[in-house]
Design a protein around this nucleic acid. Structure first.
Lengths: 347, 347
DNA sequence: CTGAAAGCGCTAACAC
DNA sequence: GTGTTAGCGCTTTCAG
């Protein structure tokens, strides 16, 4: 059992054991090409024998970047972002990086502050699900300083970085279309956070599809508490142009709707159809099983990490960045029972 | 807009501006007592003027610990641990620490490896929800090296660290008691992962309560897939000593039971009562609302971080560790509808 | 109470 | 190809 706190061997000891100079060892550990294969072998043997590992701190002090990547998400206790974090950390680990995780609490100031902190800690790359709003380009100066940045789920305003997004608009359109095919004409769109890129896109999709079908949009935002949803529902049910279907923009709102509809004894889908953006584990356990628009946090994170690692490698090679990639991931309509009769699909 | 990548001022520049020696600046930044107040003022002014911040790398190289804490959980994509991580990271940030997060994938080897990695990265403290099994004391050598370690949710085998646990046993007893009060006599206990401390404790609680009431235990483990649960349920319903109530040890199993019961058209609670360990968001949205034993990940993480920060401060002061604290957090029975008629409680 | 010197482990730049 | 030198920015000694 080796004690990781015991003074670890230094490059100097390796050099002595291998009977070479310090620099040769350094070159070997850094994969420098100009080392004779026979020499390299000797050094590698010494490294193995001593169990030598580079000292991060010393490398940092010499201006290198840390074998760390930083991840900033709006809310780590949200299962969606937690899944992203899980995947990111898993891939990072496989590539020898540790992961610094921060939840920005949906606060742009905090996000910027933490991003700068990470940058000053010399992380190799930054993965951000931004909470900054369009026009806020405070993250701009982090670019082009050898720090790789990849945005995912939402684009970074004013920043020309790689980004991985989900087809929120198309997903919303598909959802509305599904409702229309089931004969619905008065379809309400509810949720909150309309300033967020993803929600904004979903609203656009809803509106576009409604307009294309010659239907009147009916959008209510700021529905982010159970009370709010309940109250809205009661009003709706009493109104004479009451919708026959609801398209919910947020997971939270979907859940509250489920509760409120049950409370008010509104039957789904007979009295009211419901479709929610964002799939979740229990969607097919609630009654009736909820039809949703699913997106994959794992795939999102996987692609984002892929791009980030690529960037990091390029920067190490000194290659000036290729033009930023923009990747769009599809959504998937999970048809269950909440929009009317349909054969049930296994997840 | 200051550029965090621009060469930052060093201690030398601060010293020059304040017209003192390097050491005086160092003493000020490290809160050393032996600095005359007037001198301290001067230095502080210079620090503020230059926006000086200590260079982590240099401090690390001199053997100090990083302003980082490490967190290892079994599965970051599990909402329970994600909530823990969220809270930990939040408190860490408030105290000037960054958080290194790793998911051990329930793999003891990986956990040990990552813990050592973090230790070698000189984190100030380690927070672990262990996946090691009793008898595995590979983490032992990390102790007493100036690294503060706090275990939570599960104790660290063979390690004499602070730890924060949940009253799993009492929670299970309460659940079983609840079922008994509703007239149930044949109560099955199902789940998986019985080697894990928490599950083990819950099984103990179940058994103790059943025995105390003169009832026969009926335990089935390894029920960690929907298929498995479904099959088990079918067998159970056909058996002549079929249980009238189920105590589910794991969240996953509870969800699968909900699905399987619905599939088999078994009515809850009329045909079968159900109570699950671990509360969740949608517990009162499923039909019928599920009665659960709730534990608070936020409180768990809060207490763990509290203890960890305390340890870290003590170690900085050189105080040899106080004897490890053991804290037990209570569970809370969330009575909803799945065990029989009862007035419904709001969460 | 304050300062000067030494060096943590590494790598960039230059010699050979 | 390979070795030598000179710091990176800080804190620990040890003088004053």
């Amino acid at each position: 059992m080796k004690n990781p706190e015991a003074r670890r061997p230094t490059i100097r000891e390796v050099a002595k054991l291998a009977r070479v100079g310090l620099m040769t060892v350094s070159r070997v550990t850094n994969n420098h090409p100009s080392v004779r294969p026979s020499t390299r072998k000797k050094v590698e043997a010494a490294i193995a024998q001593l169990g030598y590992q580079q000292n991060e701190a010393a490398r940092l002090l010499k201006g290198q970047r840390a074998k760390m990547i930083g991840l900033i998400v709006p809310d780590l206790s949200d299962i969606f972002f937690a899944s992203c974090a899980h995947t990111v950390q898993q891939i990072a680990r496989a590539h020898g990086y540790m992961t610094l995780v921060v939840s920005s609490e949906r606060d742009a100031d905090l996000e910027v502050q933490q991003a700068e902190l990470m940058s000053s800690r010399k992380v190799s790359g930054l993965l951000i699900v931004t909470s900054t709003l369009p026009g806020d380009d405070r993250l701009h100066h982090l670019q082009g300083t050898g720090l790789a940045i990849v945005a995912f789920d939402r684009p970074l305003p004013g920043l020309n970085t790689d980004c991985i997004l989900v087809e929120n608009r198309a997903g919303a359109e598909e959802a509305v279309q599904h409702l229309i095919q089931h004969g619905h004409r008065r379809i309400a769109c509810v949720g909150y956070d309309e300033k967020t890129y993803t929600i904004h896109e979903r609203i656009q999709g809803y509106s576009a599809q409604m307009n294309a079908s010659g239907l009147k949009t009916q959008i209510t935002l700021e529905l982010l508490t159970l009370d709010g949803v309940r109250q809205w529902l009661i009003e709706m049910m009493a109104s004479k142009s009451r919708p026959t279907a609801i398209f919910s923009l947020n997971h939270r709102t979907s859940v509250f709707l489920l509760k409120a509809l049950a409370e008010q004894k509104v039957r789904i889908p007979e009295d009211m159809a419901l479709i929610g953006f964002d799939d979740f584990d229990l969607a097919d356990v609630v009654t009736p099983p909820l039809t949703t628009v699913a997106q994959s946090p794992v795939e999102l994170a996987r692609r984002a990490m892929g791009l980030l690692l690529e960037r990091i490698q390029n920067q190490q090679k000194g290659a000036s960045g290729a033009s930023p990639a923009k990747i769009l991931l599809p959504t998937r309509l999970m048809i269950r029972g909440s929009c009317g009769p349909h054969k049930r699909l296994e997840p």
